[in-house]
């Protein structure tokens, strides 16, 4: 008789820890064929708030880390992911070849973004030749806490929205794909073992319709990535709520081709520009 497997409990990832939803709720996740896979935590608005608190707390340290350090950590995430290649492929399901390709693309995407940490300021900052005796330099800085509604694509799509937000120094709260949330929690296990400080990435699983408006309306969130929102009414509600404290919004693009080479937009949308002036003189 074969051994009975020890299953994993899928919980949330907040502030570097793996709590259950404070609401005590869960929902069944099934395969495309309808087979039961696991019960995922169904996060509540209180979990959203806890996650924002964790992200805000992590912001000074993460944004204050050197770009080199952030790049090293993102590269470390790629290494850890590579080591769990088979696990992720199995969790993604579907054809084995396609699943492995998806994991590989995810690792490669991370490596690509890792390298941007200490280069984005060189291509998105400017030395300004002002008409006067002044030193004048513009540099990009992270916006702050970014709320992310992740796309359906459970791994490449997920990492393609997380990596650009955090590589520049933002911290984030991610609402994972509702239908395929399991890889997001396994990714959280990778993040938790990659020297990424707790709270830089917080992952919530649950119902997008229920959670996204709270994240969009939260007054301590500075940016909102609506990439994974496919419902036009929900997108409108969220964008309107985001106006209250002038969040920087990345609008929905649920059908994005996640294998295509990314533009810089996912990074630059959540960057501020700071221009510093100083007179020259003796």
């Amino acid at each position: 008789m074969s051994r009975l497997a020890v299953r994993k409990t899928y919980k949330l990832y907040i502030g570097g820890a793996f709590p259950r939803s404070e609401s005590g709720r869960s929902y069944a996740v099934t395969s495309p064929k309808g087979d039961f896979l696991a019960n995922a935590s169904r996060a509540s608005r209180k979990d959203v708030r806890d996650a924002v608190v964790a992200a805000r707390k992590a912001f000074p340290g993460w944004s204050g880390a050197t770009a080199y350090n952030r790049g090293q950590i993102l590269y470390r995430i790629a290494e850890m992911l590579e080591g769990r290649r088979a696990q992720f492929a199995e969790e993604l399901g579907g054809g084995k070849k396609a699943a492995l390709e998806a994991v590989d693309a995810t690792v490669d995407r991370l490596v690509w973004y890792a390298g941007w940490s200490d280069k984005i300021a060189s291509v998105h900052g400017t030395a300004n030749p002002v008409a006067g005796p002044y030193f004048n330099l513009s540099s990009p800085e992270p916006t702050g806490v970014v709320g992310v509604v992740a796309p359906e694509d459970p791994l490449v799509g997920l990492i393609s929205v997380i990596a650009p937000a955090i590589v520049t120094g933002n911290t984030c709260v991610v609402i994972a794909s509702e239908r395929t949330p399991l890889p997001s929690i396994t990714l959280a296990e990778v993040l938790a073992t990659s020297d990424l400080p707790g709270g830089v990435v917080n992952v919530l699983t649950g119902h997008q319709q229920e959670l996204a408006p709270w994240l969009a309306a939260h007054m301590d969130v500075n940016g909102l990535d609506l990439t994974g929102v496919s419902d036009a009414d929900l997108a409108l509600t969220c964008e309107q709520a985001a106006a209250e404290n002038l969040k920087r919004v990345l609008r929905p693009s649920p059908d994005e081709d996640w294998r295509a080479a990314p533009a810089l937009t996912r990074m630059t949308r959540f960057l501020e520009t700071k221009t510093v002036w100083h007179p020259m003189g003796v």
Binding site: N128, P129, V130, N136, S138, K274, T275, V276, W277, H278
Partner: peptide, 16 residues
């Protein structure tokens, strides 16, 4: 977005 050090209220078309 703009930090003026030892000066204030300077503007220039070349400076964001």
């Amino acid at each position: 977005g703009v930090v003026w050090a030892n000066t204030f209220n300077r503007f220039d078309p070349a400076a964001p």
